[in-house]
Amino acid sequence: MGALDGLPADIRDQAKRARSERPMRAGTAWARTTSSSEKYPRPHTAALLMVVGLALGGCVFGGDDNDDGINDPLPRMSRSDAEAWAAHWTESMARTARAEIDHETERIRFSDCVGRNDEVADDGRFPLMYSVRANIAPERRAEAVRNIRDALAEQGLVIQGYRSDPSMNPANAVGAWHPEDHPTITAEDSGDDQLLLIADTPCLLPPGVEQQQL
């Protein structure tokens, strides 16, 4: 399940159109499988979050037109660092929304990378889908999601879909994608008094592992 799977159908369609129009970059030839392993809450430190954010932001992307990008260098990150990096995104959204994270709702899902032509590598590459819910007064959710949208745009993310419509369910939702680091970020109403916050990473390769050529 990708981060956009949590969005309403109309917003997902906007996001898919945006994805189809953007240029391919290293690692984007890889998709996520539905098989996964999950684990639950663990603490994160502010110092680690800062280091991890800089690490992914500093990835260098290359390419070879002869293989359609399938063997382009993948960004490198350990699973623990990817988890902390994703938590940083959701915590940042919660602060922007002035909402309190419910750590009991944290879900961490690692899965395998599968190529567009069903290629499977054995080098340990993975994507991560991280989600958590945050408590907020129902009457504040429209403003909160709007503020999250504006904050994501200020940080250089492309807003792929946004809605604030009380006649729809969920009424408030936003999906965004970063054109350099490639995470997909989602925030939407959840239940009566929560926001669902999701950070979905691209395919990542663990440090120190030789990238398998396909």
Rank of each mutant, 00 (worst) to 15 (best):
P206R: 06
S164M: 04
R146P: 00
L214V: 07
P183F: 03
V51F: 08
D192N: 08
N66Y: 00
S190D: 15
N117C: 07
A86Y: 02
A29D: 14
E106A: 13
C203P: 05
F126L: 06
D200P: 03
D13L: 05
D150M: 05
H182A: 09
A82I: 00
S36M: 12
P23M: 03
A173D: 08
M1Q: 08
G53T: 06
D118T: 11
S167E: 02
Y130W: 06
D13R: 08
Y130V: 06
D68A: 09
L157T: 09
Q212N: 08
D65G: 07
I159R: 08
H88V: 00
E38P: 07
R107I: 02
A26M: 05
A31N: 13
R141I: 00
G63I: 02
L48W: 06
V120G: 04
D81A: 03
G58R: 14
A86C: 13
L128P: 08
G69F: 03
L54F: 06
F110T: 09
T28V: 06
G115R: 14
I159W: 03
R32F: 10
G115I: 10
R125L: 05
R109M: 03
L49S: 09
E119N: 11
L56Y: 08
L197N: 02
P75Q: 08
G191C: 12
H88M: 09
R149I: 00
C113I: 02
E104R: 13
V132Q: 14
Y130L: 07
N71I: 05
R17S: 14
L196C: 07
T96K: 05
K39E: 11
A151K: 00
T90Q: 09
S35M: 09
S164P: 10
M77L: 09
A82R: 01
L4D: 13
P138A: 12
K16T: 12
L195A: 10
A151I: 01
A121C: 11
R79H: 01
G115N: 11
V158Y: 07
N117L: 06
F126M: 00
A26S: 15
R109I: 04
V158I: 03
K39I: 01
R17W: 01
R76N: 01
G161A: 04
H178F: 03
R42L: 01
A171D: 07
E154W: 10
A87N: 11
H44L: 05
Q211I: 01
S131V: 00
A29V: 14
Q212F: 10
V209P: 14
D165N: 15
G62P: 01
D72N: 14
L196H: 10
G208P: 03
C113S: 10
A18K: 15
L74V: 00
D150N: 11
A9Y: 07
R116V: 04
T105H: 12
S36R: 13
I11V: 15
I185Q: 12
A9K: 15
L7S: 12
H103D: 09
M93N: 05
M50V: 15
R149H: 06
R42A: 10
R76Y: 00
L128H: 11
C113Q: 05
R109Y: 11
A97Q: 09
A87V: 01
G161F: 04
N147V: 04
V158F: 03
R19S: 10
P166R: 09
G156R: 08
R25K: 12
T201S: 15
A199E: 09
S20T: 05
T186C: 07
R42V: 03
D10N: 14
I101D: 02
M129R: 12
E139S: 11
